[in-house]
Amino acid sequence: MSGLNRKTIFKLVNDLVMTILMLVAMAYYITGNMVHEFVGVVVLSLFIIHNFLNRRWYKAIFKGKYNVRRVIQIGINLLFLVTMALMIISAVLISSDLFPYIPIDNDMTLRQIHVQTAYWGFIIMSIHIGLSWAMVIGSVRRMTGITGPSRIRTIMLRVLAVLIVAYGVRSSFEGDMGSKLFFYNPFGWSYDNSTLWFLIDHLSIMGIYICGTHYALEFVQNQEKRGGRKNKSENLIQA
């Protein structure tokens, strides 16, 4: 793990565990309510740690220059923060096992908020990861000792990305993800497959948004670089 300090490694592990546990928390009809609520508390703790470790980002929001990438990143991060806050607050209010003594007369609206913010949080979290995917890949390279580029490795990884996205699209349609984002089902969304396939399906759906965000950012950055070079060349010609 040369090239990475302990804080960076801790941040990566914290984010990885939080991502996996968020997926576990979404498997409500597989795990049951008690496990769901306990995992939710752990996710909340990891989310607080995540924000504490990245507190400098909040201090720098109004500093420096704004490009397309930074505007998108700020918007997605703040939207993720609001979504998580709504999901957590509604979770505590409708809790029946860990926080059963909070009096709520009609919790249908709160349940709707909790379920739909959970699914939107899942998508926004994936985009959030996609925004930092280049940094994740760089950290993995340093941890594994990979230094130089490899055309074969690049082709293999891109083929893998295409396969993940293709399977993710299939899983999105089979799991009726669109309805889960825009419509509330008071009877709950059941899942017929095993826990392993639940994780595979939802990881592949995450892959759609991670890959889409990552390559969209690469395209935008390449366009900005070309625009910068073009402007520089025009200035030189005029001079």
Rank of each mutant, 00 (worst) to 15 (best):
E234D: 11
F10I: 13
L160H: 01
M87A: 10
H50W: 05
I49W: 06
F52P: 02
A118K: 08
I124R: 07
G40F: 01
N231R: 15
V165H: 10
I61A: 10
D192T: 13
I127V: 15
Q73S: 15
G75N: 05
K232M: 06
G121M: 08
S179P: 00
R56N: 09
M125T: 11
M156P: 00
R141V: 10
M26H: 01
M34I: 14
R170S: 03
Y66D: 06
G207S: 09
N231W: 07
I164G: 01
L199R: 08
I49K: 04
D176I: 14
L23M: 11
M135T: 13
F187L: 12
Y184A: 06
L21E: 01
A25S: 12
V82N: 04
V41T: 13
Y58M: 12
I20N: 03
F122L: 14
V169N: 09
N235R: 13
I76F: 05
K180G: 07
I104S: 01
L236H: 14
F183R: 12
N67D: 10
I88H: 06
I94K: 01
H214C: 07
Y119W: 15
G168A: 09
V165I: 15
V140A: 13
I208E: 02
T144M: 15
K11P: 00
V115G: 01
L199K: 08
K225C: 01
F182M: 12
I102P: 04
I237C: 00
T147Q: 14
L217K: 00
S96F: 00
S45K: 05
I129S: 03
I164N: 02
M135S: 14
D176Q: 14
D176W: 00
K232C: 01
P149N: 06
